[in-house]
Amino acid sequence: MPNEFDNAILEFTDKIKRTLEFLPSDIKQKCEEIRLRAELPVCLTVDGGVLFVSRDSSVSSSLPSNPLVVTKEDVTQCLSGLCNNSIYLHENEIKQGFISLKNGNRAGVCGVFNADGMLISVSSINVRIARQIFGCAGGLLPFVGGGLLLAGPPGSGKTTMLRDVVRLISNGTNGEYYRVAVVDSRREISGGGALDLGVNTDLLFTLDKAVGAQIALRTMFPHFIAFDEIGTTDELQSVRECFNAGVGVITTAHCNTKEELFSRDVTRQIIESGAIKNIVLLSKKLGEKPTILKDLELEKGVFN
């Protein structure tokens, strides 16, 4: 039965696919990213570390003597394959440097961009593999009420946790079937509808999360609105509107440490708005439990 890794490499060129499909199964299970760079070896991100792929489908943490090197032509063909030969359909996404793929995977693209922001020559592709881990957010359910922020460095599992929180509250795990509206700007949370987000979840696909949140608020009457990677002033404003309307917010933010959490404008403002009372700090370190900051209040300019 094909797993997430095999699905992610389906659109690669035959040369790359034939080598990657024979990688050890434990590597495939743990692989978070597949990086293709023109005229450079193929790299995988596994458990936060970098592994190089050899032509004989083995992997090593140092550069091997027979690395699997992709040509520029390979990278271009992979991009075309990932877009299903329809680059025009992904124009807006490519201008932002990514492509939404099937099953919630996302490919970051890098290369030469013209004055209009369109990619004219691709040199790197980074395929992030989406994994749905059922039950991973079970321990966070008591903290969803009052607003929940999932914070952590890249690759710490924020989106995976967000996905599971939405699924659990939508499926009535808390004793009630809550209506959840998910604003999915990059189709990463829902996998374009391929992933399970619960029976009582409405999906809104739009590149502008702030607008999407407002639409969801006005038309779907949710108990909770969930979206990924809050970062702009407009999104903060949407969060305030949700809070004023009595709608809970579940979102994520990039952050490496607890101190950074309170020093970054975005996270500080979101806590100050009162829309977020609980923060879960995730870590990339294997086995390290997340830090939960609950019932946050701002008192004399200091969070307690």
Partner: peptide, 10 residues
């Protein structure tokens, strides 16, 4: 050669 470019170029 179809499918390799932006909407306008296509």
């Amino acid at each position: 050669r179809l499918g390799q470019s932006t909407k306008k170029i296509e």
